[in-house]
Amino acid sequence: MSAPMPAVRIEGLCKDFGTTRVLDGIDLDIPRGKVTCLIGPSGSGKSTLLRCVALLEEPTDGYISINGDPLGFDRGPNGARVKLPARQIRKVRSRIGMVFQQFNLWPHMTAVGNVSEALVTVRGMSRADAEERARKELDAIGLGARAGHYPSELSGGQQQRVAIARALALDPGIMLFDEPTASLDPELTGEVLNVMRRLAESGMTMLVVTHEIGFAASVGSKIAFLDHGRILVEGAPGEVFAKPREPRIDQFLETYLDRGAATLL
């Protein structure tokens, strides 16, 4: 059975910070039109893996391809690993949208300014067209009334929704989320998770690093559990959380959920 080409294919990915190996030979396919969740204890390397896919970190070894196109590095003749030119990197990366834990909205621009900025500077749209498009994106996530506000005038949940709109405005083929709700108060995580849930239903390819086990189990089609820079288990939520479980996963679930919830899963 030949599977369709994955949206992202990661092969033998390694990343060292100094002498510490943070990612140790990751192989992972991100299926198109589905939600893949990376879970695992802090320091397991899941955020680093996501940042490698965004090429915000340069992998020490291994290959990543997006829709079959190599990202950052390619196999050269006689198996050598060659770095691709910056132009090629920007082209492949333009299909990736990224949402950060700290939102990273530009503080000197309003919500509409944040969403329209790259449409003007990168895509060459007129300011008026870009702002119109930005307002549509903001309306879609229910923030149309806040378009003229600066990030400092928005709640954390609203900021993160604007950040999602900023990424979506550029029509990415895949969206990366780096712990998108980790810096939010519990009562604000819901609004962000709802936006993500709707995005998943619309068929967006998503790679999500999260501690929201409930979200991962209900929305994720595929879960990869990372530990010490390696993928310990991967598969559908039913498989990963099915008992009997890996002891490391049990341990992890008990830390992040209370005992009662962990036994329910």
Binding site: G97, M98, N104, W106, E117, A118, A163, R166
Partner: peptide, 27 residues
């Protein structure tokens, strides 16, 4: 200037010069 704001600009495809002029300098 927090590096995350510059990474966000990089991820939208802005060039180094655009990131400097539009994001880093005003902040």
């Amino acid at each position: 200037v927090p590096s995350g704001l510059l990474e966000a600009a990089e991820m939208t495809g802005m060039s180094a010069a655009q990131t400097f002029r539009r994001i880093r300098l005003p902040i």
